[in-house]
Structure formats: structure tokens, C-alpha cells
Computed example of a mutant assay.
Amino acid sequence: MRLNLITLPGSTATPGPGITLAGQAYELIKRDLFEFRMLPGDEFTESELVARLGVSRTPVRQALYRLEREGFVLLRHRSGWRVHPFDFERFEALYDVRIVLEQAAVTRLCGLHNMNSHGELTALKHLWLIPPEERLRSGTQVAEQDEAFHCALVAATGNAEMAKIHRDVTEKIRIIRQLDFTKDHRVDATYQEHGAILRAILARRTDEAVRMLKSHIEMSKAEVRKITLHRLQAARQMLT
């Protein structure tokens, strides 16, 4: 299967301050992956990317090798590449790691002495403990806010190494989480579940918060085995 690369809105060959051409190419290619423009199993060449991005082969190659190290693409031969096919066991293992990290984070947060003065938790209250009429309705936006919610919980512990590991895991499973939000009912469900988890944390009900958090994440994990190429193609049509 050959890939028809699509130019991203606003893409440019001129990087912003402090961003290298390789770094910009990396971000644009990764965005194609996360927005289903490049599906698992799609094949492409460096030349196709060079033509689309309007940069030389060197930064494109650097970006691809970085994505290869992170497990997003595979080198086939010379300048031939392939988007990494879905590895169901790997995704499920990543979800298990995520559950362990976030449960540890919630347990620590419930033990904070002055929780009300904590900036991250205050920001989360303003985003998630709101009336239904104020909720976002876009699945894409809620998917981004969902990811930010969980990252903020871990970051609020103050453990920078835990937060870094969690961000790395989060990025690797982002595609599945975005698929979850192609279903309309998941928007309201996410607000309800996040609100319940946050209230339990603020009330220092540790066991309840940990239990609800695990159930919330496992609902997303259950989507892993339901993924099909047809569903990915349908998601691509919705988001492009």
C-alpha cells in the first residue's frame, strides 16, 4: 500500500525560533501519524517527504531515524519506510505501565498537605468541574484535554522523572485515545469520569480515586483489540 502524503495546514519549511529543520520535520510527520494521515502499514519514501516539506533529505532522514527509535516507523530498505503496524501486545503493556504510574500519582496527590493551593489541581477543577453546557463538544479537542488531564495529575506529584516516563508512554498510545473520541458518547462520559476522579482526589478518598482511575483507563485499553484498518480509515476521513 502506497501513501499519499497530505500537506498540513500552515506547514512551512522555515522553522520557528530554536526549532531545527529536522525538529520541524519530526513534528509534522508525527502529526500525520496521530491524525491518521499515515496509517499503520503505510509505505512511503524519503523523497515523498522531501517534496512535501520542501527541505533537503538530511533533516527528513534525521526526523525519520528519531521516529524509528521511538517505535513509530520502520526502515524497509535504503530510503523506503513503513509506518509501524499495530502491535496489540505492546499497546496493552503500555496501558499497564500507564495504570501503575497514574495510580501511584493519585495516591501521592491524596496525601498532599495543602491540596487547595496546588496550581495543577486548581486548573483541572476549572476545566472539568463545569456545567454540561460549558463542555467542549469536539472529540478532537476533548482528546487533547483528556491527555492533558492525566499528564497534569502525574506532573502535580512533583516527580519530574515519573512525569517524563508518563509523557513518553502517553505519546505512544495517543492514536488509540484519539480513536476513542471518534464516538460522541465518550465526550460526556469523559467529563463525568474525570470529574468523579478529581472530586475523590480533592476529598482525599484515595481508594475510591485509584479504583475509578483504573476503571477509566481500562475502558480505553479495551479499545485496543477493537482496532481495524477500516476503523482507522474512517477516522482519517473524519479528521481530514
Rank of each mutant, 00 (worst) to 15 (best):
S56P: 03
S56I: 10
R57L: 11
P59T: 04
V60G: 02
R61H: 05
Q62S: 11
Q62I: 09
Q62N: 12
Q62R: 15
L64C: 05
L64G: 02
L67F: 01
L67A: 00
E68H: 09
E70G: 06
E70S: 11
G71V: 09
G71F: 09
G71S: 08
G71I: 10
G71M: 00
F72A: 07
V73T: 10
L74K: 12
L75A: 15
H77Q: 14
R78S: 05
G80I: 09
W81E: 01
W81A: 04
W81I: 07
R82K: 09
V83S: 02
H84I: 03
P85I: 10
F86W: 05
F88Q: 09
F88C: 11
E89A: 14
R90A: 12
E92N: 15
L94C: 03
L94R: 02
Y95D: 01
Y95E: 00
R98P: 04
R98E: 08
V100F: 10
E102G: 02
E102N: 05
Q103A: 06
Q103S: 12
A104N: 03
V106K: 01
V106P: 04
L109R: 03
C110S: 07
C110F: 04
C110N: 06
G111Q: 07
L112K: 00
L112G: 00
N114M: 10
M115W: 08
S117C: 08
H118Y: 08
G119K: 12
E120G: 11
E120M: 13
T122A: 08
A123P: 00
H126Q: 15
L127K: 12
L127Y: 11
L129Q: 02
L129I: 07
L129R: 01
I130N: 08
E134K: 14
E134F: 01
R135L: 08
L136C: 04
S138F: 07
G139L: 03
G139A: 09
T140M: 09
Q141D: 14
A143Y: 00
A143D: 02
E144T: 14
Q145D: 08
D146F: 06
D146E: 09
D146V: 01
E147T: 15
E147M: 13
A148R: 14
F149I: 11
H150Q: 12
C151V: 11
L153H: 12
V154I: 14
V154T: 03
V154K: 06
T157D: 05
G158A: 02
N159G: 07
E161S: 11
M162A: 15
M162P: 04
H166E: 02
R167V: 04
R167A: 12
D168H: 10
D168V: 15
D168G: 15
T170R: 14
E171H: 13
E171R: 15
R174I: 05
R174T: 15
R174C: 01
R174Q: 12
